[in-house]
Simulated assay, not measured.
Amino acid sequence: MSDPGNESIVGRKSFTAVAINCAAKAGEWIKTKLGAYSSLDLKYSSQDLVTEVDRGSEKMIRNLIMTHFPDHSFLGEEGVEAGPEASKKALQNALEEEYVWIVDPIDGTTNFVHGFPFFSVSIALAYRGEVIVGVVYDPSRDELFVAEKGKGAYMHGKRTSVALQTTLRESLVATGLPADQHYALPINLKGVQAITPQVRNIRIAGSAALHMAYVAAGRLNGFWEIGLNSWDLAAGSLLIQESGGRVTDTFGEPYHLSVRNVAASNGHIHDELLDALKKAEAQG
């Protein structure tokens, strides 16, 4: 890289354009397959689903990205063996490369399978381990969330900003129901039981990437979940940070690509959310 400064200015624009194009094309194709998938397989558990549409979406995204950036590394959910250890190893291998694209071709496959319109395409680009581009696309609503490191976050060209509420009791927060029923799910349910009485309400809609995009857009005040992967979180983490929010692990340590237990918020309620998880012994 002869001129890192110039590369960051010129390069990121093309990186973002490619990410947007990939998310939009994959999302529109996924939408045509709603209710029309032909195969359904189980991965890590009976709640961890994959269809040929997931695989086709990832192949489409990979091919488009590699056409533009053949020297970059690619980490997609469907190219990794099921289970947390395989995910950890795949991420470690990918991060040895300077640039790595981190992709969830359908975040919310269970929703997609059941025709529940809350799923998304999540695409992030990391440079030397730091996320510099994040795109989350919701094909059902045709909502495109885009962030560039240091340049803000946007939804269809309008800058996004986190919600203004300052306490848990004023907040609408979200979480998930992890596919890992032996470890992550029991811990997350402890958090749900403890936090529900402390907030305005809780949403469990089934797409971590969209939940995080909603935090960035001010629709949710916070989100937490145990046992996620880099492809669930990478794009959404940048959306939130560039919208003025905060993303950490459940112990309050700064977010990085290896984080699996995440807490994200508008920033104002973050410490209170972390404290509630700690008291419930729900940090993972």
Rank of each mutant, 00 (worst) to 15 (best):
L168N: 00
R200L: 13
T160A: 07
G79S: 14
R62M: 08
I202A: 14
P254R: 05
T16I: 03
V103S: 09
A209V: 12
E58Y: 13
V53L: 10
R141S: 10
I65H: 15
S207E: 10
K278Q: 08
Y127E: 15
N261G: 09
L49W: 15
G56C: 08
N188G: 04
I202C: 12
I61A: 10
V121L: 09
L189G: 02
K158F: 13
V135D: 13
L144Y: 14
V18D: 04
N6F: 09
V113E: 04
Q165Y: 08
R141Q: 12
L233P: 01
F69W: 14
A163M: 02
S171E: 06
A234H: 05
L273N: 08
K89R: 10
N201Q: 13
Y214I: 00
F74H: 10
A19K: 02
G76M: 08
A153S: 11
L91Q: 03
R203P: 01
V199Y: 09
E96Y: 02
K31M: 09
T248G: 00
I61K: 11
V247D: 00
V215A: 03
S171A: 14
L273I: 07
T167P: 00
S243T: 05
G245D: 01
D41H: 14
V113C: 11
E96W: 03
K278T: 01
R62V: 02
W224P: 00
V50G: 07
T248M: 01
Y214M: 13
A276W: 00
F15P: 01
K279R: 10
E225S: 14
H211C: 10
P178R: 11
G206C: 05
F116T: 07
E272W: 03
E170Q: 06
A216Q: 12
T166C: 01
A153T: 10
L95I: 06
N63Q: 14
E242D: 06
E78G: 03
K25G: 02
S243Q: 04
Q198H: 06
L277A: 04
P84I: 12
G227F: 10
